[in-house]
Design a protein around this nucleic acid. Sequence first.
RNA 1: CGGGGAGUAGCGCAGUCCGGCAGCGCACGCGCUUUGGGAGCGCGGGGCCCCGGGUUCAAAUCCCGGCUCCCCGACCA
Length: 484
Amino acid sequence: MIENADDFVKDITRMSDDFDHWYTDVVRKAEMADYTPVRGCMVIRPYGYAVWENIQRAFDDMIKSSGHENMYFPLLIPEELLMKEASHIEGFTPEVAWVTEAGRHGRLDQRLAIRPTSETIIGTVMRKYIQSHRDLPQLTNQWCNVLRWELRTRLFLRTAEFLWQEGHTFHASGQEARDEVDLILEYYRQISEDWLAIPVLTGVKSQSETFAGAVYSKSIEAMMRDGQALQSGTSHYMGQNFASAYDIGFTSRDNQRELCHTTSWGISTRLVGAVIMAHGDDTGLVMPPRVAPIQVAVVPIFRDEAGRALVAGFIEGWTAEVRGMGIRLRVDWSEGRPGEKYNRWELKGVPLRLEVGPRDVAAGQVVLVDRLSREKRPVPAAGLGQRLRDELADFQDALHRRALDFRAANTHEVSSLAAMVAHFQGGTGFVYAPWCGGAECETRVKDETGGVTIRNYEPEERASGTCLVCGRPAVHRVAFARSY
RNA sequence: CGGGGAGUAGCGCAGUCCGGCAGCGCACGCGCUUUGGGAGCGCGGGGCCCCGGGUUCAAAUCCCGGCUCCCCGACCA
């Protein structure tokens, strides 16, 4: 591993040599995030945080358009509250951190959990606001941090503390709650595919991977460039499990006391890691334009003060127009040679670069370079804003198409456990197989392959053939993969 | 929580075995020359050698105790 301090591509471990080290090198050298003195906790640096902010904005707009409202709930959850829903406790207790002292003068009569997720406190609070069927549905969301004491951490993908949104909704009927789960899953698909250019499998999780306390969980599953799957968002139907444990009820139209049906759903800063691992290459990051903090980097080239002034005047001639079209453009006036800047912006994955020197000024043009092909194309300065807008849209599409092609090339189909095991001896990617629905067969695959699991499946899709493990009639066609 | 590795300048490391002036590369500051794919030369600043004890004339180095981080597994968004 090369770990020199200078922030250049020559110091990034090659992806093909060691994907894990490549990832860590890129995250740190592109100034996305870094380690801190706090165990398992990262600092998200401005360039990484800006990506998260863009994701936040996009998703926040989506949920508000369908009537969801943001709230904020306490970070600390009294032990008694956390402990009401049996399977939820079982799932989360191992990774919960506790506050057991409260300063010099404070007294705690019970310890307080630092939220690992907020079903318990939100349910407890929201029950006060739900009396009648007229109060439903309640469509709440909060943007916050949570803490889960993970033993093994990885920047963005798994840290003890992370940022996310958690939606929690309360409904009068099960059907309405199940529709909510599907609506949010569709939003997540759009965020991933339309904004991040990462194709995903949408579907339901097997029972063993269902959220602690849920009736069923759905997910979006993306493929990283090492062929491993990344669960990138989840949407859960809780049935009346939480409503029952926390007594979240309402009076129905015909004056009957009924329990709510609830959902919860979340996406996190893990999505930033997904962008890095789904699109990056040996040169560094590749940012999808729609969430790229900088969409166009301009590198001025000049020899002396006179040249500098000439180039500066030329650039000023069109930056206002470009920015006015909502394009995030940055002119790099920092010291340093052009070559150094080319490499820095490529490392950071900026989709488009404009090189502008005296020759270009004379010709009334700029040299356009895109991060995918890295070919140099002269384009006229006249109408540059529209040209850049088109190029960014094309780039977004090309990146998505590349990811689709990559996934297709790394997706396979098998019909027997032997074939599954053989594939994952050295192989990666998604492997579809018919499955009977039995947990034992799922476990068997995991044991025999050393960790391959069912990512998700389309519940409506009926499988033909027989279960890859037990040979009984198959019920579902499911996607298997190694996952993060 | 098991196994492994590492804490020395902002970053990456050598020095530790065999005790004896605190080093190298990059980064950083200044000057000059440069600038269309990672510039060159010169000068310069910067240290709680992870923490606490012990041994010794003398400890980055040896001994004892502790802390932290990273990697690999099992667990997880």
